[in-house]
């Protein structure tokens, strides 16, 4: 009997320790979540202005650029954004499900993957996609330079290989700190109104007549620098959406884990007390039995 109380005590100790760890992880994720949400908000203005600029250019004249036109092809380049670390509930699994769904919905297309995060490598493998580039060193504080190298990897492949029909992104859209949804969305060819809608920026630009713009040195050169900058913005925003979702998912997962640890601890404590009581009762019974045998 003494043995049983000891093992229960032991279990309680380990559950308590795990609870402490998950609690700490929850706290860390809360602060990271706050930061990433802040960041997401900070770049909103920039993104909005970039979209407006591109839209203004569109209104005044139908301009053409390789990244704005749709192409025919048999291949799709898919950018998968997931986390580097696990322990974030269904976050990665939801992205994976969307990827699977996309592959099943488009059986005729060959899907090549560019992955961001160690977990998305696994997602690509699970869906039997060929990984053409892997970015697993992105930290929580990725820089503009890192995003640019990612964009470069994407655009280079896309512009060199004519058989790519489009570039799509599998990412997690951040709705609020309690809800986020994984989705697959087109990136190139760039559709301004769609991208705006996805990032919750629609309805800002009014459709008034814009005066004719002057371009220096010329229209094509301006467009050549505007379009990549908008793509960059879109990509940056998508990465931030995913990051904010990841941390929120982790907060939720860790909170659940902490709650479960608490419940488990309560159950164990009850069991422990019962076992202790049983041991005492038995000991008394033995003493009483012993003394009555002596007298």
């Amino acid at each position: 009997m003494a043995m049983q109380t000891k093992t229960i005590k032991h279990k309680m100790q380990s559950v308590q320790n795990i609870g402490k760890i998950t609690k700490a992880m929850e706290m860390i994720s809360v602060s990271k979540m706050k930061k990433s949400i802040e960041k997401r908000g900070a770049s909103h203005i920039f993104a909005q202005r970039s979209f407006e600029l591109l839209e203004n250019l569109h209104i005044h004249k139908q301009l053409t650029h390789p990244y704005l036109e749709s192409r025919k092809g048999t291949k799709v380049l898919m950018l998968i954004i997931a986390s580097n670390k696990g322990l974030c509930g269904g976050y990665n699994m939801n992205v994976s499900k969307q990827v699977t769904r996309f592959v099943q919905d488009n059986p005729k297309l060959v899907v090549d993957a560019i992955v961001v995060g160690k977990q998305s490598e696994k997602i690509a493998k699970r869906n039997q996609l060929q990984v053409v580039a892997s970015f697993t060193e992105f930290s929580d504080y990725f820089t503009a330079g890192e995003v640019r190298s990612l964009l470069h990897a994407i655009t280079e492949r896309y512009s060199q290989d004519e058989s790519y029909k489009e570039v799509v992104i599998a990412y997690t859209n951040f709705v609020s700190s309690l809800s986020f949804e994984a989705q697959v969305t087109p990136m190139i060819p760039l559709q301004v109104d769609k991208a705006q809608k996805l990032l919750g920026m629609e309805g800002v630009s009014d459709k008034r007549k814009f005066a004719q713009y002057t371009f220096e040195p010329n229209e094509q050169e301006v467009l050549d620098s505007v379009v990549p900058s908008v793509l960059m913005t879109v990509l940056y925003q998508f990465l931030l959406e995913s990051l904010a979702s990841e941390h929120s998912a982790r907060v939720m997962a860790m909170r659940n884990a902490s709650d479960n640890a608490g419940e488990l601890l309560e159950d164990l404590r009850l069991n422990y007390n019962r076992a202790r009581q049983a041991a005492i009762t038995q000991e008394i019974a033995e003493i009483v039995g012993g003394s009555s045998a002596m007298s």
Partner: peptide, 19 residues
Amino acid sequence: TTSEGEITVLPDHIPLVVP
């Protein structure tokens, strides 16, 4: 500082886009 050299923009400038 634009790609075409330094420019100054005053109020009522015509709409312009320049890298």
